[in-house]
Amino acid sequence: MDKKIPLHIAFIMDGNGRWAKNKNMPRNYGHEAGAKTVEKVIKKARELGVKYITLFAFSTENWSRPQREIDSLMKLLSKTLARYNKDSKKNNTRLIISGRREKLPENILKDIDNVVESTKNNTAITVNLALNYGARQEITDAIKKLVSQGKKEITEQDISACMYQPGIPDPDLIIRTSGEKRISNFLLWQSAYSEFYFTPVLWPDFDGAELEKAVTEFQARIRRYGGI
C-alpha cells in the first residue's frame, strides 16, 4: 500500500446490536465484540501510518436507549479504558475526547481524565473518542463560546478554533459500517471535504483487511476540494 495514506480516519461504528441478534445473543454481546474490533482497527491504522482516528462511541441521542443498555455500555467503556491505559505505552497511542462531559458518570470521567493524562506524550497515533457527542451540539457550543468572548464578527476559522478538538486535522475518510448511509450527527463541520466509505460489514466483523479495502478505495479517489 504505497499510495497516500489518509492522515485522519473517522468511524461510525454501526451494527453491534444486529450482529448480536443474528447470533441470537443479547445486544451487550455485540457491544463487547465491537470493543475488540476497536483494538484491531487501532492496531491496523497504526501499522498503515494513519496518525489520527476518531471513533463515534456514544452519541448525545444514545441516552434515549434503555437504561439497562446504557449501564452496560458504561461498564464496558470503563473496562476498555483501563485496558487501553495499560497498553498505551507499549502501543505509543494517545487518547483524546470529543463531547460534552455532563451526564457522563463520575467514574467514567475519572477514567477518561486518567487515560488522557497518562497518554498525552504518546506519538504513534491519536485516538479521538467521540463520547456523549453530537455534531450540532458541538457547533452550538462553539458559537456559544465565541459569543461569550464578545465576538461580533465570526469567521469559519473562529468556529473551527472552538471545536472540541481544534488541534487535529479534519478527517480525510469517514467509514460507516453495517450498510447504513447517513452521517447521524457526526462531525458535520469537519466533514465538509471528507471522503465517505459505506460498507455492509457489521462493526464486530470489521477488521484490518476491511480497513485496507477502505483505504485502497480512498486512494483511488480524486479530491478536488471544489476545484477542477
Rank of each mutant, 00 (worst) to 15 (best):
S78N: 09
I183M: 06
N107T: 15
N114T: 15
P6I: 03
G30M: 01
P6T: 03
A20E: 12
G208N: 00
I12V: 11
P105A: 08
R94W: 13
E195T: 04
Y133D: 02
I222H: 02
D111N: 10
I12M: 14
L104E: 07
I159Q: 13
P105K: 02
K120M: 06
M25C: 07
R68Q: 09
P166F: 10
D207H: 04
R18T: 01
M25W: 05
R65Y: 08
D113N: 15
Y52S: 10
L146W: 02
K86N: 12
D71T: 06
I96Y: 00
A130T: 14
L131Q: 03
R182Y: 08
E69C: 08
K40W: 01
K43T: 03
D87E: 13
D14I: 12
V50I: 13
A130W: 06
L7E: 09
L131H: 07
G150C: 15
E39M: 00
F198H: 05
N122P: 05
I108L: 14
S59H: 10
A192Y: 07
N132M: 05
R94Q: 15
D2F: 12
K89T: 10
P204H: 04
S88P: 04
D141E: 13
V41A: 09
E153W: 05
R101E: 08
K145W: 08
E195V: 04
D87F: 00
K43M: 14
L7Y: 01
K90Q: 15
T119Q: 07
R101S: 12
K110M: 09
L188E: 07
T80P: 01
N114S: 15
Y197H: 12
D141W: 09
S64M: 13
I5G: 06
P66N: 13
T119C: 01
A214Q: 04
A45F: 04
V215R: 00
S194Q: 11
A57V: 03
S64Q: 15
N22P: 03
R65I: 05
D71F: 07
D172Y: 00
F11I: 08
A209T: 05
S72Q: 10
I5P: 01
G49A: 14
G15W: 00
K51M: 14
R221M: 11
E217W: 03
R221C: 10
W19Q: 02
K44C: 10
Y225H: 01
N16V: 01
I228N: 06
L131P: 07
K36Q: 09
G15K: 01
D141M: 14
N121T: 12
D158S: 07
T119H: 03
I42P: 00
N24E: 06
Q137T: 14
D14W: 11
P66S: 14
G167V: 02
T126V: 15
P105C: 13
M1T: 02
T37N: 13
T216Y: 06
S160M: 08
I5F: 03
E156I: 11
R68A: 14
K120D: 01
E153G: 04
A142L: 08
K90F: 07
I12W: 08
N121A: 12
T126F: 13
L104Q: 10
T93W: 00
A82Q: 12
D111Y: 05
R83T: 14
A35D: 04
M13A: 04
G208Y: 00
E210S: 03
R136C: 09
